[in-house]
Amino acid sequence: MTAPAKPFPRRTWLAWLLVPVGLLLFAGANAHLFYVAVQSQPDCVEHLKAAGDGEGYRAAKSAC
């Protein structure tokens, strides 16, 4: 004869609920960051075009 199955304690149910919710939240946040990174295209900004055009930084390879 087998013993009757014990119901899970309340903390176990809570863990089985919160872990998948946390994983879904993490995956959703990463998907959103990936979407924003792929969809955003910043405008060109003023920068030095050639070396020696004054003080400051210049783009290594300008897309403008």
Rank of each mutant, 00 (worst) to 15 (best):
M1D: 15
T2Q: 13
T2G: 05
A3D: 14
A3I: 12
A3P: 07
P4D: 12
K6M: 12
K6Y: 06
P7F: 08
F8C: 08
F8G: 01
R10L: 15
R10E: 14
T12N: 04
T12Q: 14
T12H: 09
L14D: 04
A15K: 09
W16M: 15
W16E: 05
W16D: 03
W16R: 11
W16C: 10
L18H: 03
L18K: 01
V19E: 03
P20Y: 07
P20F: 07
G22S: 12
L23C: 11
L24Y: 05
L25V: 04
A27V: 08
G28L: 01
A29M: 05
A29W: 10
A31S: 11
L33V: 03
F34W: 13
F34S: 02
F34H: 10
Y35L: 08
Y35G: 00
Y35A: 11
A37K: 11
A37F: 08
Q39M: 04
S40Q: 05
S40E: 12
S40N: 10
P42C: 09
P42Y: 04
D43G: 06
C44V: 02
V45Q: 15
E46P: 02
L48V: 02
L48W: 02
A50H: 09
G52A: 05
G52Y: 04
D53N: 10
D53K: 04
D53S: 13
G54C: 03
G54T: 13
G54P: 11
E55M: 15
G56R: 11
G56Y: 04
Y57S: 11
Y57R: 13
A59N: 15
A60E: 14
S62G: 12
S62Q: 06
